[in-house]
Design a protein around this nucleic acid. Structure first.
Lengths: 216, 216
DNA sequence: TAAAAAATTTAGACTTGTCTAAAAAATTTA
DNA sequence: TAAATTTTTTAGACAAGTCTAAATTTTTTA
């Protein structure tokens, strides 16, 4: 098996790969709160194990083997988050740190049984898809509410910012996964938006609108 | 917080302390599958942190602080074992290794909620007591079936040997926690015993009788 | 396109936890 | 109780993962 550090590198590289094909040393260092020199050392090890494609100064991509491991860690992270929210009743802004530890529990059988226990959830509490045991999941597209025009509507299906502060704010405003929203007005001055959510109108800044995602 | 290695040392010292007041370097080395020299190094660190009382060549005892940590790890281990058996339907001989990893998940709130989720179980799947959040548990005494005479009876309440092989054997014979047993015969020749368990008679060796415990 | 700036890698060092081999202390035994 | 044996500790080394500082490569910019 891989070390904890290796698993965290693979997971970060996977997430960064969603935005850029080649992931840079500095991006990884920032994501893992470490130094570029440390990243270079680890990249050599991961390349030796054939988990990444690495050419000096060129950035990295995951190999098929590396991506498989990354997706399995993400599967574990998201299933544990679902467990923490649905079974232990934590709030969606409280579970990330715990899941960061739990995602490294190694047993595959354990996670498959946990999946069954919860009746095979498709999304974690933040709307992110949960890969199945083979690493497959539907790559549905989401777009920010900021991209909507007046009178357009959608269902809240994800967040771009996973910080506790943002999640807490959304929770307080009842802007949670599954809620149906409609844009009733866009303020010219600052591009902030007024949304119709169930019976109430909610005013959100452009910043919030960019980080709150709806299904297309 | 403490490192994973430190937690494992404290836990081992706690378990060994149940048999001997002072725990020796070699005992710890054997329990942790490491070398005496490595143990000496770690004992110095734990003593510096005031988690153990350590005098060179004299063996160690846990301080109150060290015992508290050890009991919390044991609490986590046993609650996760209960979860794995009761909720995920693993067999009692399958859960130890998984719980060895899960016991190091740090959140106290998580384990308290898990405890509540399972309705505050008092014993793990092997009959061992689960400490509460303050490290308290009933210190009930158990004795081996080997200590019984003919016609005496009791309720299976624990095991002395936690190895998968022993647990699997017991499971197959229906010799599980909570079963009522009565000694119907003791064979002079090898001190093996014939037990009445529910409707059936089961013949167990002296070795088994020494490792299977009943409530006094 | 050459100089400046930024990104990345290398070199050497440090910490944690481990090891082997040798030394020292404690215990057993004759 | 002195010698032999066992246990424990010390000394020095190593691997993993990290760091700082310096060197190198790439990218940007003037």
């Amino acid at each position: 098996m891989n070390t904890l550090a290796e698993e965290n590198y693979l997971k970060s590289i996977y997430h960064l790969s969603l935005n850029d094909v080649n992931v840079s040393t500095n991006q990884i260092a920032a994501a893992l709160n470490t130094k570029a020199a440390s990243v270079t050392d680890m990249l050599k090890k991961l390349a030796d194990k054939a988990l990444i494609n690495y050419a000096k100064y060129q950035g990295v991509t995951l190999t098929a083997a590396g991506e498989k491991i990354a997706l399995h860690i993400i599967r574990k992270h998201r299933l544990w988050e679902y467990f923490l929210v649905e079974k232990l009743h934590f709030k969606w802004d409280e579970v990330h740190e715990m899941a960061e530890e739990m995602e490294h529990i190694s047993s595959i059988e354990l996670i498959d049984r946990l999946d069954k226990f919860m009746d095979y959830p498709k999304h974690d509490p933040h709307g992110d898809p949960i890969p199945d045991r083979n690493g497959n999941f539907k790559k549905y597209e989401l777009k920010p509410i900021a991209a909507l025009n007046v009178n357009e509507n959608g269902i809240i299906s994800g967040v771009r910012d996973h910080s506790p502060a943002f999640l807490q704010y959304l929770g307080k405003q009842q802007l949670t996964i599954g809620k149906k929203i409609k844009v009733t007005e866009i303020i010219d001055y600052d591009l902030s938006m007024i949304l119709q959510v169930e019976q109430t109108e909610i005013h959100i800044s452009r910043e919030v609108a960019k980080n709150l995602l709806i299904a297309i």
